[in-house]
């Protein structure tokens, strides 16, 4: 469903993404992990069409992507960000936020679609006429996911979608993402600095460091410690030590 070959992205003289390649099958989830500044968000932004200054080859469903994308691309590929507060307009109700993609893509039956959209992310119908500040962080992220789904996309690009949430809300949102994927056959690329989150949702995982994809491995291999790059080994060790409530941390 997604093919990325030798993607490079520069900001002035800095090469933030230095020739990375990966492929994601339809209905599968690919995770990208790495420390902050390693280039994870830059990869998603190039893929989603938010940044058109890149080289290499990218294709979705066999169709090569040009730097500038058509309307159909933006219908089929949607992005969800870490901070739903930043991505929802503060003066727009949930109803407006969900209607907008329907208008842009000329989709009818707004009433039915909005009600089904709210139900699908387990928001109560009353949430429809609320403003973002009247919702909790978890509810706002549900709205952002509902909005991304309005245009009936095939691909969701998720940038740290649970990093700003309480752990109990994180669990609910991760379960929701798993359910939606199963129900709609969605393809995900999930970016996170949290290895356990990525391994929970994704079968294949790419590890980034300094703009390069230093290793791609399965979630099982990561869990079992079958890592080949020292950076992956290091990230895994720290993550495992921190998730155990007892025992030493070695830095």
């Amino acid at each position: 469903m997604i093919d990325v070959v030798d993607l490079r992205v520069r900001f002035g003289r800095v090469e933030a993404v230095r020739g990375i390649s990966f492929a994601v099958a339809r209905g599968a989830s690919f995770g990208i992990v790495g420390e902050s500044g390693s280039g994870k968000s830059t990869v998603l932004r190039a893929l989603s069409g938010l940044n058109d200054d890149w080289t290499g080859r990218m294709a979705i469903d066999g169709q090569a992507l040009a730097p500038r994308r058509g309307r159909d691309f933006f219908r089929r590929v949607q992005m969800v960000f870490q901070d739903p507060y930043g991505s929802l307009h503060p003066r727009q109700t949930v109803d407006r936020a969900l209607s907008e993609p329907l208008i842009v893509h000329g989709m009818g039956d707004a009433e039915g679609r909005i009600l089904r959209g709210l139900a699908e992310v387990a928001l109560p119908p009353e949430a429809r006429f609320r403003y973002p500040h009247q919702l909790s962080g978890g509810q706002r992220q549900r709205v952002a996911i509902a909005r991304a789904l309005m245009s009936e996309p095939d691909v969701l690009l998720l940038d740290e979608p649970t990093s700003a949430l309480d752990v109990s809300v994180q669990a609910e949102v991760l379960n929701l993402l798993a359910d939606l994927q199963e129900r709609r056959g969605l393809t995900y690329v999930l970016v996170s600095h949290n290895l356990a989150v990525v391994a929970h949702l994704c079968g294949q995982i790419g590890v980034m460091q300094g703009g390069e994809l230093v290793e791609t491995l399965s979630a099982e291999a990561l869990r079992a410690g079958r890592t080949s790059h020292p950076h992956t080994t290091e990230l895994r060790r720290l993550s495992t030590e921190l998730e155990e409530p007892e025992g030493p941390i070695t830095l």
């Binding site: 752990v167 669990a171 391994a199 929970h200 993550s239 495992t240 998730e243």
Partner: peptide, 28 residues
């Protein structure tokens, strides 16, 4: 911590995804 008894504390520990213990679905 592993001997926490309050159900809220236990719930906080249980809903975390963990590399070392895969779960098909997270506890909420």
């Amino acid at each position: 911590l592993t001997r926490a008894t309050h159900p809220y504390t236990r719930g906080l520990l249980d809903c975390l995804p963990a590399l070392s213990h895969p779960q098909p679905r997270l506890k909420v």
